[in-house]
């Protein structure tokens, strides 16, 4: 009996550069991450390319967020987290000796699942990173530029001194994006950025990601397959694997152009997931 397939529309995007023209920003080689004795992801080999949007999809607990948080060393904050294998950022071993996590995070920004503006004014939220990182020249212009890039300027330009907590959830999330891009990172990571937002705000964030792609490399973790199909150029599907010792870990099942993942996946598990038969 033929399973009923739910077809996911893959949004037309500008032509992807051919494989040889793509420039890898991150290169994960046999990457495994542990929390204490628990292996969260294992054997991940994956290249993330410059100025493309890469989506990471997969069922809950498959290590999507864990992988994302290794990219800017946010996992360093978890005391028991450790990592084997290699993760290179523009050729440099991200976990090599002498690499400072603070410097890594300056170059690789992050937007979180729940909007987390500081309890200060809209202006100060965006200016915060700029002030501390010494980018104080033309502060007003930089704040405006970031807010414009985050498609928020027109909504807040008359109330920059108001508390950021007075904004709607969608506006707060765009403020967090403005805050992240104000300090001019090279990569922006999105950890389920729209899962706490309504459909209209989600759509605004997705449009924004298309705009940001011109200047930034974007990586997005999402539960929402339609979202991955709409925004991503490349899609990585993570699945759950139970090893002989009983450890449940996330593994990279398939990584390809989004079109391919959603229309003609090579792996049965990917096909099962994107057609809604499991996960």
């Amino acid at each position: 009996m033929e399973a009923i397939k739910t077809k996911i529309e893959v949004t037309e995007k500008e032509r992807l550069p051919v494989v040889s023209e793509r420039e890898a920003v991150f290169e994960a080689r046999d990457l495994a991450v542990y929390y204490g004795d628990q292996r969260a992801i294992d054997g991940v080999n994956l290249d993330i390319y410059q100025r493309l949007i890469t989506a990471i999809i997969g069922p809950s607990g498959c290590g999507k967020s864990t992988f994302l948080r290794t990219l800017n060393r946010m996992n360093d904050l978890v005391p028991a987290a450790r990592l084997t294998g290699q993760l290179r950022y523009r050729g440099i071993d991200l976990y090599g000796p002498g690499v400072d996590a603070v410097e890594v995070r300056r170059r690789v920004g992050m937007v979180f699942q729940k909007p987390n503006p500081f309890h200060s004014s809209i202006y100060d939220n965006v200016a915060y990173g700029l002030r501390i990182l010494g980018m104080k020249k033309d502060l007003d212009e930089r704040v405006e530029k970031a807010l414009r890039a985050a498609a928020l300027w027109d909504e807040v330009k008359d109330r920059l001194k108001d508390s950021a907590l007075g904004l709607s959830g969608g506006q707060q999330q765009r403020l967090c994006i403005a805050r992240a891009i104000a300090v001019e990172p090279e990569v922006v990571l999105f950890d389920e950025p729209a899962s706490a937002l309504d459909p209209i705000s989600t759509s605004a964030i997705e449009d924004l990601m298309h705009e940001l792609k011109r200047d930034y490399t974007l990586v997005i973790v999402t539960h929402n397959m339609q979202q991955a199909a709409r925004v991503a150029d490349m899609t990585a599907f993570f699945g759950l694997d139970v090893s002989p010792d009983g450890n449940r870990q996330g593994v990279l099942v398939e990584y390809d152009e989004t079109e391919k993942i959603f229309t003609n996946p090579s792996d049965k598990r990917t096909e099962g997931y994107v057609t809604g038969r499991f996960g």
């Binding site: 800017n72 995070r105 300056r106 987390n116 309890h119 990182l133 992240a180 300090v183």
Partner: peptide, 15 residues
Amino acid sequence: VPSSQREASLALGVS
């Protein structure tokens, strides 16, 4: 103080 506030700052490359 919620940890999301710390993360917001740390993710900007603030020590």
